[in-house]
Nucleic acid binder design. Sequence first.
DNA 1: CGGCCCTTTGATTCATATCAACGGTTGTGG
DNA 2: CCACAACCGTTGATATGAATCAAAGGGCCG
Lengths: 214, 214
Amino acid sequence: MSITARSIETKTGSTPIAFPPSMIGNQKTSPLTTFAGGAEIYVPGEQAGNLYEVEFGAVRLHRLLSDGRRQVIAFYLAGETFGFEAERSHSFFAEAMVPTGVRISRQPDGQASPELLILALRGMMRAQEHLTVIGRQTAVERIVGFLLDMANRQGSLNHFDLPMSRLDIADYLGLTIETVSRVFAKLRAAGLIKLQSVRCVQIKDFQALGGLCA
Amino acid sequence: MSITARSIETKTGSTPIAFPPSMIGNQKTSPLTTFAGGAEIYVPGEQAGNLYEVEFGAVRLHRLLSDGRRQVIAFYLAGETFGFEAERSHSFFAEAMVPTGVRISRQPDGQASPELLILALRGMMRAQEHLTVIGRQTAVERIVGFLLDMANRQGSLNHFDLPMSRLDIADYLGLTIETVSRVFAKLRAAGLIKLQSVRCVQIKDFQALGGLCA
DNA sequence: CGGCCCTTTGATTCATATCAACGGTTGTGG
DNA sequence: CCACAACCGTTGATATGAATCAAAGGGCCG
């Protein structure tokens, strides 16, 4: 069964609750801030400058067009860092998709730490690779690629939780919720995956799935 | 009329010809290397580590899928810099689209210069914004946005050259060459642009075009 | 002048979106 | 403890924007 934290003290507003490090047990890191599923972490226009490292849970970055169309730019899982921007203020929404804990640190102001450069370069590469997915791949290719990426990022288990809804997946891959659902059904019918629950995917045939990627 | 350099000493191979600075007249910058239109500047797998600043001409970065589908990741015009990567080796093809001169400098090895960080963050932001274009915009929105972007980057002239072919534009925007051609025709028929030649666009109505963007 | 390549235009097809309805799960309140 | 409501996901029918297939112009170079 899928395990999702549901009893963690969380918040739905936008003012982080910071627990002192002593409460967490790790004296060296910044305090842990938690967010309820659906809670905004920051919004476009808000001043940037913090780095957010996901301790547990999952975060999405997205942008809205004026008529409501939405593009999810990236997902961040446990251990991953987000929040750095080229501009002074944020360009995207950052929202927790499930109960999530992040460690917030001040981005060295105007300083170019090697770590931040690596993050920026990797972020650029990820976005550039995602361009090919959205620009040139079919619905099946996009979703198979997405599932394999998720499996990798969760430690290459053949069995993992999707912390995001079908709508989030659709908006990440440039598809609709119905298309996502249909492709999942097709992969299941072909015996390539198994849905232990709506949010919990088991990969039955890595090799065959790999063959469906571009 | 459109002005395109055609008589410059260029090369079609992949070994840059470096002119000593004294030949160029600027003693402070790195030597100028020129490439013929269509010439490869680097290919995937090649060792990365150089920065390339476009002096004149235009470069495209692209990637190929195994079956030949192509995604153009970015265009670089005069004054813009490319070539930085998260990995040790290049992930993309870089090709001159027209006769092009670049200044190549060694990327400070493992060093995190503020300039490089800015480039990386801006590159990330550009790619992320392009995701929304490709993932959620219509053919007309993509092309109008592209034309306005090109106008901006060439100094907001209402009259500029496109250094790339229709195929390049299509592969950049996730469309086909035919769709690009039809949208151009439509914009021309609506009196919003004028094609002085295939490669030279005149913007007739910035405001109306802006209204067509998402 | 002739050939090649790029672009345009037209006819048709197709993948995915849209519209519509149903099903399953979760959480709540009587 | 059960009934209901809300939400999310699935499935089906139809519509449509862009792709594909096809062929006919230009412009440039040899």
